[in-house]
Amino acid sequence: MDFGSINPALLIASIMISATPILLAAIGEMVVEKAGVLNLGVEGMMITGAVVGFAVAVTLTSPGFGFVAAAFAGAALSLVFALLTQFLLSNQVATGLGLTLAGLGLSSLIGKPYEGMKSPPMPKLDIPVLSDLPIVGRMLFSHDAMVYVSLLLVVAVWAFLKYTRAGLILRAVGESHDSAHALGYKVIPIRIAAILFGGACAGMGGAYLSLVRVPQWTEGMTAGAGWIALAIVVFASWRAGRVAVGAYLFGGVTVLQLNLQAAGANVPVSLLSASPYIITILVLVIISARGVHGAPASLGRSFHATH
């Protein structure tokens, strides 16, 4: 067997492309969960973002507007979730599943006229000097803008949660909504803001699939990416930096598996496809066993102010 044909620079560049949609969705979902809300509707919001982003990008021949529209579409769908869970106190697990169902249905209705169309190409950034570096230039500095946006978003979320007062309040709301409420913080508006942010990120992640990674619109094209994003948040034990690591790992396993096959290795496809999930469970066990329960304490619980 000869793996010489695998070019590490290209491999990493591919992994970055394949990781970006799940990274965007996961970083958004992490903020939602940090606020104590479990939204299982990521898949639904992603695919809605994918179709709306694609439709707008094609209509206006501008991928940039596509991403903006996708963010709004994802946020709009998440607003349904926010209203149900925050005002009407519905169960978050069931509402999230309903959101996925509705999102899948809605997206294929919207998408019918756009099947078989091609998206306008997303320009690759040509960063002076950096892009021209040997190997590293091709590997890290010749991507489209969204790859860097997603990474900047990770940094921004990390800084926001760690250093800002607003971030502290958001975490407090996620840890104990009753105490946060007693301290005078508005639990529900804060959670709604987090949910909308999560929706917008998932929407952009979906649009990255339909505008860059595939790029075209087809029904059901997210094919479980939203669920992977949920796994990544867990894998990352709710830390921004690890979300990036997790997304690249998940994306990496997929791409590496394909590359090994392309290089002629006889790989057990099922085992490799299942491995990221098994690793996630192991990580979960390790962080739990250390006694550091990474999960926000109020995760998934409804809040109702009694006074």
Binding site: S14, I17, R213, Q216, M221, A225, T254, L258, N259, A262
Partner: peptide
């Protein structure tokens, strides 16, 4: 589609 695109790239 996403997997097919990744496979083609690989």
């Amino acid at each position: 589609p996403a997997k097919e695109a990744d496979a083609a790239r690989a």
